[in-house]
Write a protein that binds this DNA or RNA. Structure first.
Length: 491
RNA sequence: GCCCCCAUCGUCUAGUGGACCAGGACACAGCCCUUUCAAGGCUGCGACAGGGGUUCGAAUCCCCUUGGGGGCACCA
């Protein structure tokens, strides 16, 4: 099996493309075949610098390694279409020589006008085949005038074309609904249709797995294969990914959520937002495919072992950010704390929290069950790295306690913590639980007051770990500060 | 407008004629656990788009309607 992923470097790597690449990769790995990456850069006007680098980085992030393609080479190269131009020209001319294609001298303006008229009359748009049967003399005239022609395929004007889709079964179209598509543009570049067919043939691609949006042009490709006298590969068209807005496919243009926030669509955006590649892999795999009846979380090895084209669903799928977040959380919780610490460091640094491994590990233990993306960690522990904290002193006073009670409790806590031989979680817990009992308070009351005094919030990571992170000296200072605030605060 | 594809809980899906008064997951709600928040556990809510057939029997097969999506470039 030889499977290719053939993106066009016209923009940043998109999750829809990533899902296609993932399925191509899974199919290749499952069958023990080759995964080939081919760059379809045959439109000079749409080329975007940096797009190729972003694509390769995205594929590597998801660990979708390719056996042949840019940077790794292979026996069928080059794998960048702009480096294969003479090939397409030669094959296009071959079709002209056979009479299966012809040169068309119609200027773009005429074609635009033609489509306008067709739209006006309510006719389907399409080339009117004006140049399909030019006389030798007409051709000579155009050539003498220096008009650069395009090459068009001579599509049959009757009959039907059928191809078998591995996911959908047979698909048939009436040839009369097809027009004579351009194969070679006047700038000497091939169109997608030509380049794709020539390369798939030359590279001995056996399976073409691509997005649903290609179904309408597949019959044209079949006709092209027939014109060349080649056997077409097998086709499998994947369902599209829909935007959560419910309207249309997940596009590169930013769709906005109900709150006006922008949905993430580029692979690099997910990476920067703190999603783990293994979670992304798992989630994307499930968007249109299922491993079995109930399994949601699986490793890439399991996916490779189980992947079947037959289990790909036909209906388009809405991209669920909620489920992705949940899944990312699952993967974060599965990480060894040391690994999480390491992965967290760049994200913490981005928020100005530069820490050593040991501190990062403490943070990791504290936030592991509380974050759904790596980027969320900083906001949970920033109190421990801030010079000062501010809060409404009223928060200090717990349910069932007076201002006086709270002041006494904080003061007693401060003394207890100051005298502790070791400032670690276990010692703190023992001491403070005893203290609560001695003061006639519920543990939650005492802990709540300390939590606000030290973190500035009513909701924070587990208390003792938080105290350890803040450090004894600053904990004591913050307790004292809270006591002062209560003196000032009339309650 | 024309052509093509698709149709099970709000969402992702299982289901390939009887084991389905439809299973799992996310989300949502309640309860439990608990120093707050989480995480975890349990429970609940919730779907075969509609109508015709075929069949002893249909979520599963066929047709129509409706709905959704995609495509109709010298873009991919």
């Amino acid at each position: 099996m030889r499977v290719r992923y053939a993106p066009s470097p016209t923009g940043l790597f998109h999750v829809g493309g990533a899902r296609t690449a993932l399925y191509d990769w899974l199919f290749a790995r499952h069958t023990g075949g080759k995964f080939i990456l081919r760059i379809e850069d045959t439109d000079r006007s749409r080329y975007r610098p940096g797009a190729l680098e972003d694509l390769l980085a995205g594929l590597r992030w998801l660990q979708l390694d390719w056996d042949e393609g840019p940077e790794v080479g292979g026996p069928y190269g080059p794998y960048i279409q702009s480096e294969r131009l003479p090939l397409y020209q030669e094959f296009a001319n071959r079709l002209v020589a056979k009479g299966a294609a012809y040169r068309c001298y119609c200027p773009p303006e005429r074609l635009i006008a033609l489509r306008e008229q067709q739209a006006l009359r309510g006719e389907p748009p399409g080339y009117d085949r004006a140049c399909r049967d030019l006389t030798q003399r007409q051709i000579a005239d155009y050539e003498a005038k220096g008009v650069t022609p395009v090459i068009r395929l001579r599509v049959p004007t009757e009959g039907t074309t059928t191809f078998h889709d591995l996911i959908r079964g047979d698909i048939t179209v009436d040839n009369r609904s097809l027009d004579d598509l351009v194969l070679l543009k006047s700038d000497g570049y091939p169109t997608y249709h030509l380049a794709n067919v020539v390369d798939d043939h030359l590279m001995e691609i056996t399976h073409v797995t691509r997005g649903d949006e290609w179904i309408p042009s597949t019959p044209r490709h079949i006709l092209l294969y027939q014109a060349f006298g080649w056997d077409p590969p097998q086709f499998a068209h994947l369902p599209l990914i829909l935007s959560p807005t419910g309207k249309g496919k997940l596009s590169k243009r930013k769709a906005k959520g109900p709150g006006g926030e922008e949905y993430l669509v580029m692979v690099h955006e997910f990476r920067e937002a703190g999603y783990l590649p293994e979670a992304m892999f798992n989630f994307l795999a499930l968007l249109g495919w299922s491993l079995d009846e109930t399994t949601e979380i699986f490793t890439r090895e399991q996916a490779v072992a189980a992947f079947e084209l037959e289990r790909i669903s036909k209906a388009p799928a809405v991209f669920s950010y909620d489920k992705l977040k949940w899944m990312n959380g699952v993967y974060i919780r599965q990480l060894a704390p040391e690994v999480l610490a390491e992965r967290l460091q760049p994200f913490l640094a981005r928020s100005g929290i530069v820490v050593d491994q040991e501190t990062a590990l403490k943070v990791a233990r504290l936030v592991q069950e509380r974050i759904t993306t790596l980027a969320e960690a900083a906001a949970l522990v920033d109190f421990a790295f801030a010079d000062s904290i501010s809060y409404d002193p009223a928060l200090l006073i717990q349910k069932g306690m007076s201002r006086q009670d709270t002041m006494r409790a904080l003061e007693a806590s401060r003394h207890a913590l100051a005298e502790l031989p070791a400032f670690d979680e276990a010692s703190m817990e023992t001491a403070l639980r005893q203290l609560a009992q001695a003061l006639g308070l519920k543990a939650g009351q005492l802990f709540g007051a300390i939590r606000v005094a030290v973190t500035g919030r009513a909701v924070a990571p587990p208390l003792f770990g938080s105290l350890e992170l803040v450090g004894r000296e600053r904990v004591l200072a913050r307790l004292r500060r809270a006591e002062e605030l209560l003196v000032a605060e009339p309650a």
